[in-house]
């Protein structure tokens, strides 16, 4: 089995996926016509936490309580970060221009640092461009989290459903049956609402058409009161997310965007820690502030 497969797959997978040696995408080798991606408009984002709560509701995230939160064991797949201006120097905060909010979740990197290091192969790259996490395969070595530059992987330090009783009856009836409740010793993270993209793909396939923007919304996107989050198929030029990426001249498989090299670049799309070359699938749009006042 393995030798014949090896010979068969050898030529197919000699080339890297999806980033070839030249540093730009080898879309030909991409096995599907879907690449899920997101863009978040930080100028619209108000930091209200609705996305985060929606994520708790959708993805069966345990509420860990004060004691465990104080140990940094919170399980929020989507965390809202709040930054201040530091005009007077590092650590000298200035509130005159407000704060900056940044929703942070798994960036679903194309070349994810977490994937290569998992000893059991519990986290892989899916054909629709997600960074998967197979809970039942995970043995809890936490190497993926160690290697994640964004620290967006969350580990189940305790047995939340059974021992910690995070969902006392009848709170457990709220749990979403479309995905499991993770038990102790398992790594978990944002999945771009896998259960929703799955259903969308399934329905589109049954109807014999490509997936469209209207088919799927992530839970955070759906909740966001200001509509700051856009999600969709980056390979579909008609999708809103593809249009945004294109208009912001952000390319998925570049670690330095051409536009950033240019003088007088009037665009605001960027990706976080791009220079580390994980090729994240989430584009952020810079917060804008009026200087006339």
């Amino acid at each position: 089995m393995s030798v014949s497969n090896l010979l068969e797959n050898w030529s197919k997978f000699r080339h890297t996926h999806p980033v070839d040696d030249k540093g730009h995408p080898d879309w030909e080798a991409y096995p599907s016509d879907i690449k899920w991606a997101m863009s978040i408009d930080l100028d619209a984002c108000t930091g209200c936490n609705a996305c985060s709560v929606a994520c708790y509701a959708e993805n069966n995230l345990p509420v860990v309580g004060k004691e465990k939160y104080s140990h940094g064991q919170a399980m929020h797949w989507m965390r809202i970060e709040r930054y201040w201006d530091e005009s007077a120097g590092v650590g000298e905060f200035d509130a005159d221009k407000g704060a900056r909010f940044l929703p942070m979740m798994c960036q679903q990197c194309e070349a994810a640092p977490c994937e290569t290091v998992c000893p059991v192969g519990a986290t892989n790259h899916t054909e629709d461009g997600l960074n998967s996490q197979i809970y039942n395969r995970c043995i809890g070595s936490r190497y993926c989290s160690a290697n994640c530059p964004y620290k967006v992987r969350y580990f189940n330090w305790y047995n939340y459903p059974e021992q910690e009783k995070v969902w006392p009856e009848p709170l457990n009836q709220q749990l979403n049956p479309d995905l499991t409740v993770r038990t102790k010793g398992v790594m978990e993270k944002c999945t771009f609402c896998k259960q929703r993209t799955y259903t969308a793909r399934n329905n589109a396939k049954t109807e014999g058409r490509p997936v469209q923007d209207s088919d799927v919304q992530t839970a955070c996107q759906e909740a966001c009161p200001v509509g700051a989050i856009t999600f969709g198929n980056l390979f579909n030029p008609e999708s809103q997310v593809a249009k945004q990426w294109k208009s912001q001249q952000v390319e998925l498989t570049k670690e330095v965007q051409d536009k950033d090299e240019k003088e007088g670049n009037r665009l605001r799309g960027y990706r976080i820690l791009e220079e580390l070359r994980p090729y994240p699938s989430v584009m952020y749009l810079e917060r804008v502030r009026e200087s006339a006042v």
Binding site: N124, T126, D178, L179, T180, T191
Partner: peptide
């Protein structure tokens, strides 16, 4: 059929 672990594992 799909090869992704993620397709069948939730």
């Amino acid at each position: 059929g799909p090869n992704d672990c993620f397709t069948c594992h939730k």
